[in-house]
Amino acid sequence: MVHTVLNHGAAGEVSLFRDVYVEAYRWMLLARFLDEKFASLYRMGKIHGGVFLGRGQEALSVALGLALRKGDIFAPLIRDAAGRLAFGESLSDSVRTYLGSALGPMKGRDGSVHRGRPKDGLLPMISHLGAMISVVNGALMARRLKGISGMVGAASVGDGATSTGSFHEGLNQAAVERLPLVVVVANNHYAYSTPNERQFACASLVDKAAGYGIHGEELDATDLAGCLPALANAVERARSGSGPQLVIARLLRLCGHGEHDDASYIDPALKASPVGRDCLLVAEEYLRESGWADPVMLEAWREEARQKVETAVAKVQREPGPDPYTEDWCALASKHLAEGGV
């Protein structure tokens, strides 16, 4: 369905593509405002720990989030605010986790980007890169063992994760089991400060797909119009039984690794090249040029996104943090086996 809609060749499907494009753009806007609010709160000292932004990655992220549907599995990474929202994560889950609200899904036990609702298919990342791929595989294996078909699992990683053993083991495992897995690699050219040439030596990361015997493709992730059909098609191929899919997305991180990082190591030539374009601005221009939005509409959407973020933050700021005295300090689900402190 979505994948045919997004292959916007047929004239009659243009309006459907427009609807999806506009929806995607508005999730991107919301994610951008949310990120900027977190950055602002971080600078004000209102957030404990790091803040990690998706600036420059929103087009890719939202395209993945929209390609997935309810019942699918999604293991996002640190720059996936847009994809999370499009997949169904509530704004308050992200605000509550960043601000440490006791009412959030992690209840202050974990924070920032380490959030999820496993029972809703949204897996909470650990910090060890590539480690979520095999966990997605396991969720897909469970579905298979239960006789449930038609599901897809997706994991987001970066260029740095492709150097880990977990990435290799996870992709190979999925290939052996021919699981409906989509691994999306956001190649933003730097893993923290390490550039691509110190990370891998193949001509392109997509070359790795052949080694696993899976389908791979590469795309320009600064262009939402290209991301939407590419991700929808990859997800659809996985869903229809074509096995794991590897998507390599070229983009540039338009911020530091985290807000503590000034990103002074990013090559100015890359910033000035097409890969350094801001996908949000590219999408905005596309909307204007295609006549799908005028400046008044764009401003109204921006205002709506800004308001949503402000409202969510204002509400969560009044919520209590976790209480160490009522915390049960038990890591086990089997409470009767708790050792407690010594």
Binding site: P118, V135, V136, G138, K146, E169, G170, V176
Partner: peptide, 28 residues
Amino acid sequence: PGRVLDSPISEDAMIGMAVGASVEGMRP
């Protein structure tokens, strides 16, 4: 049949697989 499965030599992915399956209600 179908419930005792050979894995590749991938200890990391074997455990990851179990965690994902466990989240989905299995007992690997």
